[in-house]
Design a protein around this nucleic acid. Structure first.
Lengths: 177, 177
DNA sequence: CTCCTAGGTTTATTTCTTCAACTCAGCAGC
DNA sequence: GCTGCTGAGTTGAAGAAATAAACCTAGGAG
């Protein structure tokens, strides 16, 4: 029953535990909802790649960091990439895979929420800005996350949404509302 | 060697634990990063209000549900509201506060990510749609989360962002990037 | 030959989850 | 007025996970 890939426990994508509803939010949380996972991804998005870098930035215990990196690699969020400093042996660093980059909106949303309700009295410690690409204007403006529907209505307020069943819907509970 | 800042981070809620960096993401996760919190908020956004409703939908143990609801109420994400069914004693139900509604973008982002990478073979089980308001067109189109900068550039890809220090920035680690 | 360093393991202790059983207050039926 | 039922929780034991700290390992430097 153990799906162990390289270390002790795994239960990453096959959790069976925290997936009481057939919902992608639950499945996403099964992968990145563990205690340090999103913070690791955040640091990776900010450029961290090496074990010690994550460790120093986050203050996480090394065994937990190792376990979380294993989970994230197994889930395809990060890749384990060998490198070799001149005059040193081969080691590994951890790069974000596409899946990891795609967590950016989630993290921006969380950051925004935290800034709004839990900010430091001095203000936010981090601002996400628009990095100008080659042909783009050099805007550097702060970035926010907005909800937009396929018809083009944008900046929808949270109340303007509702959940509708999709093709994979499965109603297992008694009270469906 | 441990960089963990000794005792300066009690000001927010009761975190104490997962706030190694002065960052709103970490603080947000201290509030809603516990194992069931976001799922509870999701159900609340979908209309759940009563203890038993959350319990039936999520399959969570009742003591944990009670504990999480307490945490969410203490953090201001939900409100505990008395109600009384005719011919029954007073009980409490749990309504989302504004803070809770503002988690919607985070949940949509997570849903989108889960749909992209972990979806059911049959497709997503839930689609978030635009609910038409009174004066609005009845669009009902699916909703996505997009990144938009203050200069109006919208649908930014994840790579187009970078983290810049804000007013409350505090650099405690060695490598700042 | 020993020390240093990055990148981890191992181990012991504390804390959190889970599951199951139990409480509590009011109502309904007998 | 006693029994049982229901929704909303508490309590307690057992297992899993988090934490902290010590330990290991492979190569290079002194």
């Amino acid at each position: 029953m153990e799906i162990v890939n390289s270390g002790r426990y795994d239960r990453s994508v096959e959790t069976q535990r925290i997936d009481p509803v057939n919902c992608s939010v639950a499945r996403a949380l099964a992968v990145v909802g563990e205690r340090w996972s999103l913070l690791i991804v955040r640091e990776a998005l900010d450029g961290a790649r090496r074990f010690g870098e994550f460790r120093a930035r986050l203050g996480i215990a090394s065994n937990l960091l190792a376990a979380r990196l294993d989970t994230l690699v197994a889930a395809g969020v990060m890749r384990r990439v060998p490198y070799q400093e001149p005059g040193d042996r081969q080691r590994f660093e951890y790069h974000l895979a596409e899946q990891g980059h795609d967590l950016r909106p989630t993290l921006v949303a969380l950051l925004e929420w935290g800034d709004k309700y839990l900010a430091d009295p001095e203000g936010p410690s981090v601002i996400v800005r628009h990095r100008p690409a080659d042909d783009d204007t050099a805007c550097e403006e702060p970035v926010r996350v907005v909800l937009e529907c396929a018809a083009g209505h944008t900046r929808l307020p949270p109340e303007a949404l509702y959940r509708a069943p999709g093709p994979g819907a499965r109603f297992l509970g008694p009270a469906e509302a």
